[in-house]
Structures are given as C-alpha cells and as structure tokens.
Amino acid sequence: MSIIETHQLVKVFPGGIRAVDGIDFEVKAGEIFGFLGPNGAGKTTTIKMLNTLIQPTSGAAMVAGFDVVKNPAEVRKRIGYVAQDVGVDEYATGRENLTLYGHFYRLDGPTIKQRVKEIFELLDLTGYEDKRVSTYSGGMRKRLDIAMGLIHRPEVMFLDEPTSGLDPQTRTHVWEHIQNLAKAMGVTIFLTTHYMEEADHLTDRIAIIDLGKIIAMGTPTKLKQSIGGDVVTLSPYETGAEECQEFIRRTQSALSDKPFVLRTQATDGELAVYVNKGESAAPKIMRLLASEGIEVESLSVSRPSLDDVFLKVTGRTIRAQEGTATTYAQIKRKRDRR
C-alpha cells in the first residue's frame, strides 16, 4: 500500500522559479524513502507541499490517505515533521517542548506523560527530561526535535536534511536512531539529504532529484549497479583550466576504443572511467596514457557511488555543487581558476 503518492506535483515561486517541476512517486508504508539531490534541487519544497506548509501550484499529492490540498487538517494529524533547522524551544525543558506538542496533537495529560517516557527512552535521552534545552548538545537537540514529531505516533515522518550541520560521529548516531524508530514504531520515513552516504546507508529506496525533476529512482544498490563495474578516476598533472580540458580530451580519445572501457565521463576537472574490473584496468590505463605522453597527477579506483549515478544523468556531481573539494588536487585547481 502506498502511503505517499504524488501526481505531476509542481511548485512555481513568484518570479517564475519552478522549484518542483512535475514529480511523480510513491512511498510504501513502512519504507525509508529518500530524496537525494544538491541544494536547490527542490527537496525542501517537496517536503513543504507534502506536509501542508505550502500549496502546490498544480498536481496532486496524497499523504496517509488524504489530499494535502483538500484535507490538510487530516494530513497534519497523521504526520510528523522535522525541519532542517532544529525547531526546539531553548528556554523550555525537553519535557515542556514535548508536552506542548502532545497538546497540539490533542493527547490527554496521562498519555503525554507516558509517551514522553517512551520516546525519551527510544531516543536515548532519558535523564534529560527536565533539563533546559539550552544545556543540550547539538545531537541531543536533533533527537529532541525528532521526538517532537513522534509524540502522536504518526504514520509518516518527514525529515528534512536530518543530519546537516552535525559532526560525522553524531550523524552516524542519528542514523541509528532513525532506523531504530522505523523498526520500533513502524513509521514510514520520508527524508531528504544531499549526503550520498546518508542516502546509501539509511534508505530503502531513493529518488535522485535535480532542478525540480526526479532523474532516477530505485534502491541504492540497484542504482549503483546501473552504472556497472568500477570507477577509475583520473586527475591531470597540469592544473590550469585549459590544460584540464586538453587532458580530458586526449585521455578520452586514447581510451575511447579500448574493449575494457565501458564509458568515460568528464567532471569538474577530472575524468571518470567506467570499467568492468578496476584492479586490472588501472595498470592498463596507466600504460596507455604513458605511451601517449599524458601525465596523470593521481588515479583512484572505487565502487560506483550514488554520485556516479547523478553524474551519469546530469554530467555534474552532487559533491562538486556543494562547493566542497574533496581532494588536494581539486582544492588546488579551484584556487588556480580564480
């Protein structure tokens, strides 16, 4: 049974920006479903339409059996929403925050008290019920934030970038809690992220979204398999923009007709070469390039990631669009371009 269903959902903001441009997808009950895409892809706008905060320009969406436009009140009763910002009241205690939301969801006093106990246990916050939120750590605030969307035992939880701004250790910890509550409470989880590892690690199924459109959908494993084989990433020795172009052009032509090469794809100053077996292809590539006199700064062999899926469809990487250069060569290249 699908618990979220959208049909040609569109949101156009004043000024004509099509933030969400006709998306169709279904989420099954009990699933952890993720939207993966760079910032500005339309992830938050989609969440805000599904949780009734903004109205779609056109198209339709059903959440937990109700239309988000025609019956927003019924939708709100059945969902929990955890926004990107940690929406907790710092001057209140954890219990006070949670209790207020219990009242909003029309629960009676004893039920609220019982649920606070349960949820604090589930999210590993026991002992902090009556401490002010201002004394909580970042990870604890995020957990309390999640707890506030859980008090009424919703059918669907919307998590918008649940771990953005958290350090890697805390992120892993929050992942565990999200998986835990999906299992323990059977709640369907819809989350957005621009972290590939998060989508990969946490979700049952993902939709990759770019410029308001879904460009690929499926389980992370299947999506990565669609790339086939391994990825050999080559970066040029020379770092100027023109030299980069030249490197990519020459390397592509050197490798284009070789039987062990499935495909090549230029990205942000590097060249991704898709091959069947990375370990045996790497030395062959090195020999070939050496005979052509092409100098390589570095070579790495990896399994395809979700970013390779994104790259295949869009010709760009999510990583590069976040402005975070991940290797020294990339950082150097960015500096040189300025």
């Binding site: 009734t52 905060l53 969902i79 929403y81 926004a83 910002d85 929406g87 939301y101 909003f104």
Partner: peptide, 10 residues
C-alpha cells in the same frame, strides 16, 4: 529557529 514551521505542520 524553525519553531513556527514545525508548529504549522501540526
């Protein structure tokens, strides 16, 4: 702080 958005989804 995002408190208003969160409230409006309830």
């Amino acid at each position: 702080m995002g408190i208003l958005s969160k409230m409006l989804a309830t």
